[in-house]
Design a protein around this nucleic acid. Structure first.
Length: 453
RNA sequence: GGAUAGGUGGCCGAGUGGUUGAAGGCACCGGUCUCGAAAACCGGCGUACCGGCAACGGUACCGUGAGUUCGAAUCUCACCCUGUCCGCCA
């Protein structure tokens, strides 16, 4: 139950609403109609991510499979209509006391055809779905084309310390103060697992309270405390699955996963529900531990707190109408920035280029804080607008007005903020020549002291 | 973990093999009435897919999946979830 390992399983969760039957076919990452009517939109989306070469053949295959799927449905439904008609006749004849054996025999034959057509439909459908699962979201028009090199710094705040040469990295500071115990973290769990002790542990608790208090009291978010273990349907709803299963910790005996971010449980809170327009924008926040295998990044940032398997984070989640979503991304980003400003840590806001934007995201701002001890900008927040990409998969809708048809919400989220890198930056930025670390004013009421020493 | 009762539309709730997409109620929308509102009354009101320019026609969906049958919300099996009782436990 508690042992963790990645699984290589394909979707098998009975509660998953995906890939089930034609009635839930619409629950896909993209509106399937794009494949028929606006293939060029999908193509252009992949091109902007610099992945047209990778995805063009896939799109062509998907397009023809989609045509096959519809042809199968047309045939299938024709036969089903015949069967329904026939059954009615059987019923009538029986009622009248007439013989119906010939009709029943015909019905059996139709039944066989239906079975065949059904598997043809299911085959085409599964094939299209599998291809569509591979397709990332389409980035918005104002997202720069290209890869990481096209990321754009949109603004910055504060001034990085310039005495970097004489500054220590956070792990030296933390260990010297006895508040960071990396060797014992490695002993009890493995490398990339952190033990905070004494004032270090208290600092984590203070950060949690400061961030949550700010977002609930000042920004109007509802505080949630959510499970750290979620099922496959939730992981699929926010698009961690099926593509990134290797990055997750999975439980051994049950089809459950440790969350990589509170985004997963919080966004899935309203999975398969229809909200009233008056409930939007929905504003939810949660503290959680986050678990990441970091498969494929071995050797990168191995020291200290920069890349760990378990870290803490306060997450902001919003459900918006499509009309207000873009504005709300700006708002959400600024709310995350407030925390950095209050901690007095210099940071910059980076608009990610299309190729660097996450799989499910349509537009992302990263917040990078400067850590002068290691001389690096650290990503401490990623604020994203997912348009309806997640809402389709998780089937989260709202009714624009009473009596109107439901529409998919637009989901957003952002860290505000990730603790471990904040702690790294905080140690390094606020370190003093005597080895102590000053606690920023805004944190003092939560922390109860003015310095670490 | 054991026993037991259940899972039906936005919500509640009828329905045990044949016009049941599903009675009834609530909510919601439109109307009558009213100075206005409430109440009352009348009408409307699920989701998705396929075909069609459209009007419209068709199909699927009663927790999930598989099966029996000419025909399944209704019968069978498996699984998931919920309630109740017992056991265990922070």
């Amino acid at each position: 139950m508690l042992a963790c390992r990645p699984t290589d399983a394909v979707p098998r969760d009975a509660s998953s609403r995906l890939l089930r039957s034609s009635d839930t076919w619409f629950l896909l990452m993209h509106d399937i109609r794009l494949l028929r009517d606006q293939l060029d939109v999908l193509r252009d989306g992949m091109r902007r991510r610099g992945k047209l070469g990778e995805f063009a053949p896939l799109l062509d295959r998907a397009e023809s499979l989609e045509r096959e799927r519809r042809a199968a449905i047309t045939d299938l439904e024709g036969q089903q209509a015949r069967r329904n008609q026939l059954s009615q006749e059987v019923a009538q004849r029986r009622k009248a006391g007439d013989d119906a054996t010939a009709l029943m025999a015909e019905g059996r034959a139709i039944g066989d055809e239906i079975t065949a057509l059904e598997s043809r439909r299911a085959g085409a459908e599964a094939a299209v779905a599998q291809l569509m699962y591979e397709l990332p979201n389409i980035t918005l028009a104002d997202v720069p084309e290209g890869g990481e090199e096209a990321n754009t710094i949109v603004r910055s705040w504060g001034t990085p310390r310039t005495d970097g040469a004489s500054l220590k990295p956070h792990w030296e500071i933390g260990e010297a103060l006895g508040i960071l115990d990396l060797p014992r973290g490695a002993k009890i769990s493995g490398s990339g697992f952190i033990v905070y002790r004494g004032l270090g542990a208290r600092l984590v608790r203070a950060l949690m309270n400061m961030m949550l208090d700010t977002h609930t009291d000042e920004h109007g978010y509802e505080e949630c405390w959510v499970p750290l273990v979620v099922n496959r349907a939730s992981m699929t709803g926010t698009a961690q699955l099926p593509k990134f299963e290797d990055d997750m910790y999975a439980l051994r005996d049950e089809d459950l996963f440790l969350i990589p971010t509170a985004e997963v449980p919080v966004t899935n809170l309203y999975r398969d529900e229809i909200l009233e327009a008056s409930e939007l924008p929905k504003r939810l926040c949660a503290y959680s531990a986050c678990f990441r295998r970091e498969a494929g990044s071995a050797g990168k940032d191995t020291r200290g707190l920069l890349r760990v398997h378990e870290f803490d984070k306060v997450e902001l989640v919003r459900y918006a109408t499509p009309e207000s979503a873009l504005q709300e991304l700006e708002l959400l980003t600024s709310q995350a920035e407030v925390i950095l400003q209050r901690l007095g840590l210099p940071y910059r806001v980076v608009l990610l280029a299309a190729g660097d934007t996450g799989f499910a995201s349509a537009k992302t701002y990263d917040l990078e804080v400067f850590a002068p001890g290691v001389g690096k900008w650290l990503e401490v927040s990623s604020c994203s607008l997912f348009t309806d990409f997640q809402a389709r998969r998780a089937n989260i809708r709202y009714r624009p007005a009473p009596g109107e048809k439901p529409r998919f919400v637009h989901t957003l989220n952002g860290s505000a903020l990730a603790f471990s890198r904040i702690i790294a930056s905080l140690f390094e930025h606020w370190q003093q020549p005597d080895g102590s670390v000053v606690i920023p004013d805004a944190l003092q009421p939560h922390f109860g002291r003015r310095e670490l020493r």
